[in-house]
Every structure is written in structure tokens, then in C-alpha cells.
Design a protein around this nucleic acid. Sequence first.
DNA 1: CTGGAAGAATAGCTGTGGCTATACAAGCGA
DNA 2: TCGCTTGTATAGCCACAGCTATTCTTCCAG
Lengths: 173, 173
Amino acid sequence: MAIQANPWLRKTPELKIEMNLDENLDSEPESSLVDPNTHMESFRQTRHNRRTELIEDYVELIADLIEDGGEARQVDIAQRLGVAQPTVAKMLKRLATDGYIQQRRYRGVFLTDIGMQLAERSRERHHIVESFLCAIGISVETARIDAEGIEHHVSPETLEAFKRFVARGGSSL
Amino acid sequence: MAIQANPWLRKTPELKIEMNLDENLDSEPESSLVDPNTHMESFRQTRHNRRTELIEDYVELIADLIEDGGEARQVDIAQRLGVAQPTVAKMLKRLATDGYIQQRRYRGVFLTDIGMQLAERSRERHHIVESFLCAIGISVETARIDAEGIEHHVSPETLEAFKRFVARGGSSL
DNA sequence: CTGGAAGAATAGCTGTGGCTATACAAGCGA
DNA sequence: TCGCTTGTATAGCCACAGCTATTCTTCCAG
């Protein structure tokens, strides 16, 4: 049932809940609600990011594996992502049709130019996010995990701010 | 069917057996690659978060709508999320079976106690993330969009750091 | 040179989250 | 009251990202 097992949601100080349904019927909104279209655009953007993040994860990981060991085998990708090998095989096929990688049957996986560019951008962004989290005092283990999820949702503007922050050596935190 | 227990708490005993520390420590080349099992756990955590974020989005939005207008209609939810009404209907059915909301046919949607708790936690976290982004100099529009995506991937530790940062009035950025 | 192990491909299933088209219920105004 | 408009429910489709089980290929060891 509910989520009580998830520590990410557990730490909330105290949850006071009052809905006051009767009072806001005619009183002026005082809402935390923005304009519906603006709201929608945020969600649309987030959904779009969710579609691309898996691709970025794969391409980034493939680049790392190639750099580290000269090749990116499906079994290694599967192991590091924590999924089964056929899942990786299917995804690689998609990456190939999308033009990010080249595959030769029963041979290795290679990044195309486009794939390498995407990998480079992802790695840079990933590194900035992780460094930023460390700079504000997050432990390295948590920073690594959070960065894995956060990196895909960081806009260029925010990334720039993170970078500036890290460059200044953090702040008075 | 409810949210599974967080993989972090699941221990995965058989997966921990070989850490092959010896090989990783002495090689340690220019690779940015961490231990495979550690890597996997990050991705597992991220995948787990992705499963819960839609639920959180819905519950949070429903709470906002109820507070704002006294009710949460499917059409309003659909409009704000930028999806079609049947998509919302299907999702609400799932939320109902998971125990977050109560539905009465052709009547409104109401949050259960569990749903309200989740909504409150999500809103608090959302607000902290958005405030934090503003505090480091992000524009409000970008902060809103990025927060929508980031909030689901922020661990309690990181959230705590964000909160401290905002409480100190940001930094010299 | 050949057999088996390891890696890659394929088949086929599940659950999720979108969509369109359409049927049904409720409520309001003429 | 009747009918129209609005809102909800249902049916049925698709894509995607998992999975297990199984079938190739390759390659190395004996």
C-alpha cells in the first residue's frame, strides 16, 4: 500500500493537512495554482525529458565503457543498468535506428558522431550536477544517486547556475 | 497495486557477493566508472523514482485543485497535465485501487488520508526545490519547470540541504 | 578441428501511459 | 419535461521498457 517504505518521502517534518473546503468556495483563490497553460507546459517539458533520459543514460554509459575498456558489451551495459540483456538489446536497436550508435551483429557497439556529441553533453551535465551537489554539502554517495535522476531535468539556465556555483567554490554553506 | 518497497531497503543480498574491490582499486585508470553494483543501484533508485513520480504529480495536483476550487474534475486535471481526459480517468482508477483517492461515479475525486499525506509531502518538497532554484538565481519560469522534473529525484539528504540553503537566504550568487 | 561456454538475437509475455472514438449520466435552461 | 451541453466512463489501439525462455554465433581450449 502506500509508500511508507520509501525513505525519500519519509523525512518530512510534520504533515499538517487541512483542506478547508468550505472556506475557499467564494473567497479569493490565494491559490498556489499558476495559469493552466503554464502548468501544462511544465508537465509537457517534464514528459519530454522523461522520454529522452533513457537514451541519454545509455549513450553516456556506452561512452564510459568504451573509454574505460575499449568496448561496450551488452552484458556490461545490462549489469550496470541493472536490467536484463534482452532489454539492452532491444534498446540498442532503437538507439541504432535513431542514429546514435552503430551495431554489427555479434560485434560491438560504436557511437556515431551524433551519439558521441550527445554522450559528451550528458557527461558534462552529469558531472556538473554531481559536483554541484557535493559543493552544497551532499555526501558523494547521495550526490551520485541524485545526480543520476536530476541531470535529465536540468535546463541550460540552471546548469549554468550550477556551474557558476561550483566555480566559485561553493558558498557560505 | 501500491508502490513497491524501495530497492534501497531491499538489500539485494545475492548481488552484493562480489564487489571485486581488489581489481577496481589497483587499476583506477582515467575512468569515471564506479563499481558496477554501485552504478546499478543508482539506476535502480532512479527507475524506482520514475515509477512514483506520476502518482505524486497527480496527487499533488488534485490537492491543489481541491484547495483552489473545492473540487478536482477530470477535465481540469487533464488540462493542467496536458493529457486527454481518458488518460486521467485511467490513472484515477489506478490511484483509487492504490488507495490514494476515492471516486464516486460521475462525482468528484477525493483524497484519502494516505493521499493527503502524500500530497502534502510532495507539495512541501516541490516548494523547497522551487525556492532553492530561485535562491541560486534561476528565473521563476525556469525554476517552475525544472522543479517539476527535479523534485521527484531529490533524496531527503539533498532536500535538507536545499532547505538549509533557502533558510540562510541563499548565498552570494 | 571441434565442442562447449559466453555473448547476442529473437520470440512472446506483462504493465504502463498515452491516444481517439464513442457511449452514458447529470444538470440546467427553455 | 425535454433536450443540449458538459463531464465521465469504456473500448480498443499504440509505443515503450521491462521480463523469461530459447535460439543463434563466435571463439577459445583441448
